[in-house]
Design a protein around this nucleic acid. Structure first.
Length: 363
DNA sequence: GAGCCGTGGAT
DNA sequence: TATCCAAGGCT
């Protein structure tokens, strides 16, 4: 790719030519408007690498608002990476329940163990070594390197993709166009305050350069922005069209014992909701299956009114719920267990299963 | 490279 | 209601 020749930072636009975006202008904006977030250090200081790591994993495809309470809870329960490494995986999964993308929780735990085993409990100050850790990909490795250690790294998340593609009017559809965006982002990154620069880019994307109707008049880079000059910044980033989302259906078996305990089991080690807790059900397929042969135990099953609707990343699920009330003498079948509602918080119950329980009036 | 992997809020 | 999307990574 070709870069425009370097010009003094103070250069102003010549007729028809936008000036080069000035990193210092963005940093000055950041110093005035930076968001206060639980995982961020005070201005002028570096954040704890463990805090940066924990927040970055939680923030993958997840909103700041959703992460807040989970971040606080994890930090209170496991104050250091060594504490997290020593925790049982089941406890980490139950603490993560509700946040989604559960492979992150399994990798978070594996990563904590690896940091202790490989690096003596300290995160390596090296992008390549960070990238080698489980659950840490190109974005997160660069983010930790930049934010925790102020190394000259260029994380590219959804915010930065948007900012950079607009800045240069890069219109090659994603994901193919990501290479050019990454190169542009790297070229923009200054040697001074690279960590603040990365966070400034993300804050800019989150608050000014938003997906729809961006607030260009408030943007420190309004003048050099090519998309803004062209009049339609919201067109960027251009994305490849996505396919249809299929539907699946199933029937869940809500067995309730006389004392209120519910029959639960743990999902398989791999695939959707791996190792999470579930209410037993038929397989989820394109067409609902006959429930009889899938019931966990013999009982008088009654169909509850309504259905549970839940949308996963790549399919939509409709779950009808059968309920049966069992006596105290009912034994849990192999692989199943009775769990009282008071014990739900200690279970790794994903949201879809909370919905199933709620359908039976249980919570 | 493309499919898999959650959830909830905004528009 | 439908669609998008939010600090992506793994296989």
């Amino acid at each position: 790719m070709s870069l425009s020749p370097a010009r003094p930072a103070a250069a102003r636009s010549v007729a028809g030519h936008a000036s080069r975006p000035d990193p210092e202008a963005l940093l000055a904006w950041y110093d005035r408007h930076r968001r206060r977030l639980p995982w961020r250090a005070e201005p002028g200081r570096r954040a704890d690498p463990y805090h940066v790591f924990l927040s970055e994993i939680m923030l993958q495809q997840t909103t700041v608002k959703a992460v807040g309470p989970y971040f606080s809870a994890f930090l209170a329960r496991w104050p250091t990476v060594a504490h997290l490494a020593d925790a049982p995986l089941e406890e980490v999964l139950s603490a993560w329940a509700g946040l989604g993308y559960y492979a992150r929780a399994r990798n978070l735990h594996a990563c904590a163990k690896a940091v202790v085993a490989r690096h003596g409990g300290h995160f390596p100050q090296d992008e390549a070594a960070l990238l080698d850790l489980p659950g840490i990909g190109p974005y997160t490795a660069a983010a930790i390197a930049a934010i925790a250690f102020d190394l000259k790294a260029s994380p590219v998340d959804g915010n930065i993709e948007r900012v950079v593609s607009r800045l240069h009017a890069l219109d090659e559809p994603l994901p193919k166009g990501k290479a050019a965006i990454r190169a542009s982002a790297a070229a923009l990154t200054p040697a001074r305050r690279p960590g603040d620069f990365a966070q400034a880019m993300m804050d800019l994307g989150a608050t000014i350069c938003t997906p729809k109707s961006p607030a260009c008049s408030l943007c420190p880079w309004m003048e050099p922005c090519v998309a803004r000059a062209a009049g339609d910044p919201a067109r960027y980033p251009v994305k490849a069209p996505k396919g249809e989302k299929p539907s699946r259906a199933g029937v869940a078996f809500l067995a309730v014992r006389a004392d209120g305990a519910v029959l639960l089991r743990t999902r398989p080690d791999k695939g959707l909701l791996a190792k999470m807790t579930e209410v037993p059900s038929t397989p989820w397929g394109p067409q609902p299956e006959a429930p009889e042969e899938h019931a966990p135990l013999k009982a008088r099953w009654r169909l509850l009114p309504g259905a549970v609707e839940h949308v996963f990343t790549h399919f939509a699920l409709t779950l009808r719920v059968l309920r049966a009330d069992l006596p105290m003498s009912a034994a849990a079948p192999a692989g199943h267990r009775w769990v009282a509602p008071e014990g739900f918080d200690a279970e790794a119950l994903p949201s879809v299963m909370r919905k199933v329980l709620a359908q039976g009036g249980i919570e």
